[in-house]
Design a protein around this nucleic acid. Structure first.
Length: 494
RNA sequence: GGCGCCGUACCCAAGUGGCUAAGGGAGCAGUCUGCAAAACUGCGAUGCGGCGGUUCGAACCCGCCCGGCGCCUCCA
């Protein structure tokens, strides 16, 4: 029984989809006016994992994540850079998609853009005007908050409180300071579309209502985003959508916590933010390993809690992950004839599967899910000492892969263990030659290394430990770690 | 001013009324090893910011206090 925390009720609720075995979910994406930072990464990751887990449970999921590609910030950026709004939006939209790829976040099923839904938006505004929830003010259209009694339901605010705290410069022409723009008339040079109220562009909130209704229907299951969107964005979406359709809008509201630096919210004004690409550029690891490490790090904190980012915590995540990939390496090695561990493994697998599901069923408790995978790692390592058949080894690896899939972990075949990448031959490690970190500092190939390792083991057989140590030291200097097995053979990794 | 969140070992982090307070990282000791690495084993909070209260029983509920943070304005 999957329970999910609903901001609307402030409680964990059993997820009961509108249609059996079907989930329609919408997550607020980004406004494409700059490179995305870790906060965006976290949000994308949270909903990626939710989507995966729902699919893991056999739900047929339709996931929509939008792009806000018309907005004041984009216009500002465009004028600063001497480009058009469309060019700015296009540039950062592509950058976002690249970043998501690095993080291993799969695209949503539908990734609509605001600018492609102008007719939907206009239609929705028209309905709101007809129903008396919106009013025109010259070329602008405003939503009249007081016409919607449920306003404040999501953010648990009262209209009076909002008024008291209003620090914004209030547009005197509005009937009420809380009223927000549905349609903004445009100044020359700004992106604009024809509408019954003159040329202009949509306000921020209305686009999400229009796009979610278009792609998921008037009522759908899950709607999410960062905590900061609760007010006013999602509150406004509810007001618009419910007023327009007369129906319930999203049924479960899911909000992820912030990424912080030194206990403080990561934000541009504080200047303490990291862009996703910055993290990857600075990283000493290969991209796909940095991506997995970032995911592991982020998922070891519950999605609703604040998450403090630091280089140290990222390194800790990498170390933790190394343990898994060390095991995966062992699981691939030829096992003897022993299979004493096979039977206990089956029990361990069942335990893991149950515990994993239980953790994820409890409001997507990924930290516990990962802890369970860690326990399972220990068990498999222990059983490996007793002896596991080849088939059992494969099964164990498969269990890691299938459960890890939900979290986007354990999908890689190879793992780079060394803290500093000194790529000898780019093709050896699977890095593109144009990767700026692929500096060729040595030309040791896999076969070169294997030859050295064989040579060393030959020396060990002769008890020539001096030579053996020399060879190992040489390999260590090339960032190759050699580990001897009990049978006189060795495994190596770099 | 209004609404809300957090404070668990050296670090990260689950647990939110009742078995020995998960798990990881780091550290130390041991087994194994020619040595190492990996793996395994053991050690590590008599206590969960502080003080009261409720209860047979609280890290978990209530109150107050201390410390930190977020939203109320664009923000994942």
């Amino acid at each position: 029984m999957l329970k999910i925390y609903n901001t609307l009720s402030g409680k964990k609720e059993v997820l009961e989809p509108l249609e059996p075995k079907t989930i329609r979910m919408y997550a607020c994406g980004v406004t494409v006016y700059d490179y995305s930072h870790l906060g965006h990464a976290r949000s994308a990751l949270v909903f990626d994992v939710i989507r995966n887990y729902l699919r893991f449970n056999g739900y047929n999921v339709t996931y929509v994540r939008n792009f806000t590609d018309v907005d004041d910030k984009i216009i500002k950026r465009a004028s600063e850079e001497g480009k058009t709004s469309a060019e700015i939006a296009e540039k950062y939209l592509l950058a976002y998609q690249e970043d998501m790829k690095l993080l291993g976040v799969a695209p949503a099923d539908v990734e609509p853009k605001a600018t492609e839904h102008i007719p939907d938006i206009i239609r929705l505004i028209q309905i709101l005007i007809e129903k008396g929830h919106a009013y025109r003010l010259n070329g602008d259209v405003y939503y009249e908050v007081k016409t919607y009694p449920g306003y404040g339901r999501l953010s648990k605010r009262k209209a009076e409180d909002l008024l008291a705290g209003a620090r914004v410069e209030v547009d005197e022409r509005k009937r009420n300071p809380m009223d927000f723009a549905l349609w903004k008339s445009s100044k020359p040079g700004e992106p604009a579309w024809d509408s019954p109220w003159g040329r202009g562009r949509p306000g921020w909130h209305i686009e999400c209502s229009a796009m979610s209704i278009r792609h998921l229907g008037e009522t759908f299951d899950i709607h999410g985003g960062g905590m900061d969107l609760i007010f006013p964005h999602h509150e406004n979406e509810i007001a618009q959508s419910c007023a327009a359709t007369g129906k319930e809008f999203a049924r479960y509201w899911v909000h992820n916590g912030f990424v912080q630096i030194n206990q403080e919210k990561m934000s541009k004004s504080l200047g303490n933010f990291f862009t996703i690409r910055e993290i990857f550029e600075k990283s000493e690891w290969l991209d796909h390993e940095t991506g997995e490490t970032l995911r592991y790090f982020m998922l070891t904190t519950h999605y609703r809690s604040p998450l403090d980012f630091s280089d140290q915590s990222l390194q800790e995540a990498k170390n933790a992950l190394n343990g898994f990939y060390d095991l995966f390496k062992r699981l691939k090695e030829p096992s003897g004839k022993k299979s004493k561990g096979d039977k206990p493994l089956r029990q361990a697998v069942e335990r893991l599967a149950d515990a994993f599901r239980q953790a994820m069923d409890d409001d997507f408790n990924t930290p516990v899910a990962i802890a369970e995978l860690q326990k399972f790692r220990g068990e498999v390592n222990r059983l490996l000492e007793i002896g596991l058949s080849h088939a059992a080894c494969n099964e164990a690896r498969e269990i890691f892969r299938s459960h890890g899939w939900v979290l986007g972990l354990f999908q890689l075949d190879k793992w780079q263990f060394n803290p500093v990448i000194k790529v000898r031959r780019a093709e050896d490690v699977g890095v593109g030659l144009n990767d700026k970190r692929a500096q060729v500092v040595s030309i040791l190939t896999d076969t070169d290394i294997q030859k050295k390792v064989d040579e060393r083991n030959e020396a060990r057989r002769r008890k020539d430990f001096k030579l053996a140590d020399e060879i190992r030291n040489f390999l260590t200097s090339q960032d190759v770690i050699v580990e001897d097995r009990p049978d006189g053979t060795s495994r190596w990794k770099r």
